[in-house]
Simulated assay, not measured.
Amino acid sequence: MYPEVIIHNSVSLDYAVTGFAIDLGQHYGALLAFAPDATLVGSATAKSGIERFLDITEPETAADRHRPAVRADDPRPIGVFVDSRGVLNGLLHFYRNLEHIKDVVVLVSETTPEDYLDYLREREYPFIRCGAERVDLPAALRELRERFGVSRVVSDSGSDLNNVLIRDGIADTISLIVHPVVAGDQGKKLLCPVGMRAKLALQKAEALEQGAVHLVYAVLKEAGDPQP
């Protein structure tokens, strides 16, 4: 059985995730209100976040090479990164140092480069290896629950990962903070064609500051959908 999975993102009125200013306080306030045990981020989104919001020239220190102690009573989520290609090689210390996550776990596949696996082992990053060429997300999520006690995951990522979560019937909820702006051609869309339709049921519509609206939808599962 895999954990409950919530897709969360901030979007424009034309459902772009880039090309406009995101209110980080609103975004992460709504995300953390779900009280997730883990956040799920794709490698491209994670690297982009470092480039946009952090000092990418900040060097790794000796302390960054060791996994910090994780207390059982620490309410912060685990940061889980889907990275079968080793995109985050040399960069994970930025996330290890973030205040709002307590640990970093990486999801990889059988074709993940060995030098990246060595990097993870040497720096004590736990990793889950599932799937042949790409990460087998259902299997990895099940192992995430078994090994780390994760019962709720919030995906905070881009279209590639969101597409898989919807296409494979993994997502249970979609949470969107809709900003009053049209990104037009400047914005990358939240979802690309996912290969299947998904029926949704509105659970929440809350007006936020600066004209934004928080919408929460349940993903209605149908007969034949993959089971946890």
Rank of each mutant, 00 (worst) to 15 (best):
M1Q: 12
M1A: 11
P3A: 01
P3M: 02
V5P: 12
A16N: 13
A21G: 09
D23N: 15
Q26V: 14
H27R: 11
G29I: 10
G29Y: 09
L31D: 09
L31E: 11
L31W: 03
A35V: 11
P36L: 03
A38Y: 05
A38W: 03
T39Q: 06
V41H: 12
A46R: 00
I50F: 05
R52D: 14
F53N: 13
L54S: 10
L54T: 03
D55W: 09
T57C: 08
E60F: 06
A63M: 09
A63H: 12
H66E: 08
A69T: 12
V70P: 15
R71P: 07
A72W: 05
D73T: 11
I78M: 13
V80N: 02
S84T: 05
R96I: 00
H100C: 13
S109L: 05
E110P: 00
T112S: 08
D115H: 12
D115S: 03
L120C: 04
R123V: 00
Y125N: 00
G131A: 00
D136K: 01
P138G: 03
P138I: 05
P138F: 02
L141C: 01
E143R: 13
L144T: 10
R145Q: 11
R147F: 04
F148P: 03
V153C: 08
V154K: 02
S157N: 08
S157F: 05
S159L: 05
N163W: 09
R167Q: 12
I170T: 06
A171E: 08
T173P: 08
I174P: 00
H179Y: 05
P180M: 05
P180Y: 04
D185K: 15
L190S: 00
V194C: 11
V194H: 11
G195T: 10
A198Y: 05
K199M: 14
L200R: 03
L202I: 10
Q203H: 11
E206W: 11
A207V: 11
L208E: 01
A212R: 10
L215Q: 06
A218D: 14
K221H: 14
